[in-house]
Write a protein that binds this DNA or RNA. Sequence first.
DNA 1: TAGGTCATGTAAAGAGTTACATGATTTT
DNA 2: AAAATCATGTAACTCTTTACATGACCTA
Lengths: 184, 184
Amino acid sequence: MLEYIILGFLMTKERSGYDLKRCMTQTTSYFFDASFGSIYPALKRLTQKGLVTFREDVDGGKFKKVYRITDSGRTAFMQWVGEPITFERSRQDHLVRVFFYEFLPRQTAVDNLKDLMLQVTRVAQGLTEQKGEMERRYDVHQFPYRYATLLYGVEYYDLVLRWCDDLIDDLKSDSATPRHAGHE
Amino acid sequence: MLEYIILGFLMTKERSGYDLKRCMTQTTSYFFDASFGSIYPALKRLTQKGLVTFREDVDGGKFKKVYRITDSGRTAFMQWVGEPITFERSRQDHLVRVFFYEFLPRQTAVDNLKDLMLQVTRVAQGLTEQKGEMERRYDVHQFPYRYATLLYGVEYYDLVLRWCDDLIDDLKSDSATPRHAGHE
DNA sequence: TAGGTCATGTAAAGAGTTACATGATTTT
DNA sequence: AAAATCATGTAACTCTTTACATGACCTA
């Protein structure tokens, strides 16, 4: 997967490993991210397979390896991107603890959910700004897919926030039956 | 994480590795799942740490190891479940390809998105049925967290479906500008 | 008797992160 | 002069899946 994402980013222009990391952090990190520890080995593998080449560049004294996609790289990417999308149920780690919140005092549950909302709000803010910037600067109909993935992110975070809020409301209105009583 | 989920499932009753797998598939698979290849080693580790014990059972000739949570297991679980929830941006693999759909002919994009919708619909159906069954059989206010996580799943799949649908609509209304033209 | 389900387990491989090592340049 | 950023890379570790091995019981 990572290798194809790298190829995808190289489809439009040549980039260094460092550039690729920045790309991901800025544009895809809300649905896919990778560390240097996986990017550099991936670039090595792609080079060995002949899907990318690189030139060494000294830009202002700084040593750089700038990667460019090859023709077979383009072919491999085009083959991959056209394949049917396989829907994988994605792990939602934040749900795991909540699933077991029956064992927690209601107040702790509410506090932790509120804290979760704060975290999500922070992440969501960055995305919403990106979306606004895109709407201001471009005609979004020209980039339907980039815009759609951004929208997905904004709506997803919105869902998580609404969900937390609804659950907190539900817990407050119903504080007469503390489910955590009786354990042990 | 897996070890705590196992402890969580053992909080209410004793279960075998096989039971635990069935539990997860039935109740948490839309946000967390694990294979036998990770469950059995996890149970071994939990036993070594003294957080669970087991008894060997021969149920109708079938050999079973039934695990029970210990007191230190309960303590460890209660400590974990009360910790603040850390929100991790979760990978949404289905978005990765779509992010690069500018390189695909519009018709292929639409076809693949429709196929994705079919897959999601199938997964969503199971969850919606579970939700309906819970509403019929129990007073959902008695199980706010189980019900909330179910709701999350239903709403999440709904979001994905609406998102696909909106994107397909957008692509149809705007078919005059095929963005894929011009590559290679 | 063949295939399905119940039941446990291991080994190899895959995919990734974290931490570290290195060193130049740029900003404070 | 220190700290941050740019830039590449490796090694150890973690977590996980897939594939396999084993064997009993159940059902068509």
